[in-house]
Design a protein around this nucleic acid. Sequence first.
DNA 1: GCCGTTTTCGGCCCGACTGTTTTCAGTCG
Length: 568
Amino acid sequence: MQNHKVASLLNRVADYLEMDDVDFRTKAYRRAAHTIETLSVDIAQIRKQGKLQKLPGVGTHIGVKIEEILDTGKLEYLENLKEQYPVDLDSLMSVEGLGPKKIKLLYHELGITNLDDLEREGKRHHIRRLKGMGAKTEAKILQNLEFARKSTGRQLLGEVMPLARKIKEKVGALEAVEEVKIAGSIRRCQETVGDIDVLTVTNHPDEVMDFFTQMDIVDEVVVKGHSKSTVRLFNGMDADIRVFKTDEFGSALVYFTGSREFNISLRKIAISMDMKLNEYGVFHQEERVAGATEEDVLNALGLDYIPPELRENTGEIEASLEGKLPQLVDYSDINGDLHVHTNWSDGKSSIMEMATGAAGRGYEYLAITDHTTLPVASGLNEKRLRQQMDKIDQVNSQLNDIVLLKGAEVNLDSVGNLDMPQNLLEGLDLVVASVHYDLHQDPEKMNERIGQALENEQVDMLAHPTGRKIKERQPSPLNIEKLLEKASDTGTILEVNSQPKRLDLKDMHIKMAVEYGCQLAINSDSHHVDSLGFLELGVATARRGWAQKKDIVNTLPRKKLWKKLGLI
DNA sequence: GCCGTTTTCGGCCCGACTGTTTTCAGTCG
């Protein structure tokens, strides 16, 4: 899949065009880039079918440029732009407060092309002499430059979520605050998060701003106003707060939940209806038509309510207009977890502790799926696995509300053989297969390797199918369409792994899997009783992939699941 | 550069904050 590459080159073109104050052409490139970035199929595939120009935002010119990128890996037009401004745009743009216009000015007047140049000229106080700049701007640039160098970029949803909830709790506890909600990419449950957006209803904005900017987790106040403030937190992440009136809160939520592209589409709809949409409401002439709740706002635009996880402008608006939005799976639909580890392998909790924890979450069943043989995970050998099966029988006899399934997470070798004999697998209730090494074979080999495992009748499920770790490890370069087809043919369940770093399958692939008619299971893969709750992240990801209850096997009640697994 | 229940030409989302400005440009979300 070269989608990401194509999108980022088009975005880069837009950056350069913006330096020269080209307005609408810039927008055109960004729009096309967004379409491709969020595409759930391979752009090369669409090109083969001759359908590039059917994509929203792609016309004749950009279409040709996409073909050039696919054929040569490069774009002549972009290379020319780069020659005109030979600057390290990536790093300079990462300095807060610097955009294309200022970068152009700095290059032209001072020859600044990278962060080192920027620091040098700043310290010599040359920047403050430029038109439109001053001592304050210069000082800010120097300060933000330091931050840009250290910054690690976006952080994992699973890691940021607890902090966001803490802030919500603190702000919500204020007497002056009537309502508080986390918006932004956290509410949309994107796998990574750039900042924390807090929205409040209050009649005492200044009081809320004072509190927010003085919280003990705040390192530095970036901006402070009467309706908006931004702080930098101890972990290097920014948090924004906005205050609104009760009758504005719905439109504010819509606006600050985004995504940006979703908002732009909504506004266009408003305009086409001779109305105006902003964060304060939907307006016809000067009269407010809606604003108090999200439902009101969307309904005023002729739309059904759209869950936050879907708001990416990738088809949900059209579906909403036609009344064809899916009824998304919900955490409350989940009846069990089919992939957890215990202290028999690399987990930290006992079988009984995991069982009790799962029962406490209201689950009807829990599959114990410790690693086999894998040395780095203290995997079980045949003898230990048989012992564990006996142990599970014994624990089961002490449990009332929940039933444990005897499972294992077996390992695929380089050609797709399993690390446990077939007759032993036959005795298990649930066999989970997964790849743990040799993750970067060429695609064909990888598809064949996994395909062989899926064809094994004893294999019920494929765990973390692409093996990616967000920000750490690329997904295996396998052909995802072929994998989905195979899983669909063999009836093998594909996992939505809920580990914050994995979220694998990811949203886009889940959407594809649903279209291919694959069966999915959302599992925590937890190694400790306290991390069973990760499963909620997996549910959120599945929702982003348009998955419904019927697509997820562990929403089934016990008997029906047993039937599916051939246990009764 | 793209697009069309109103268009094949003339539009293209909207507002807050800051710093530098005597009325606004740049940046951000």
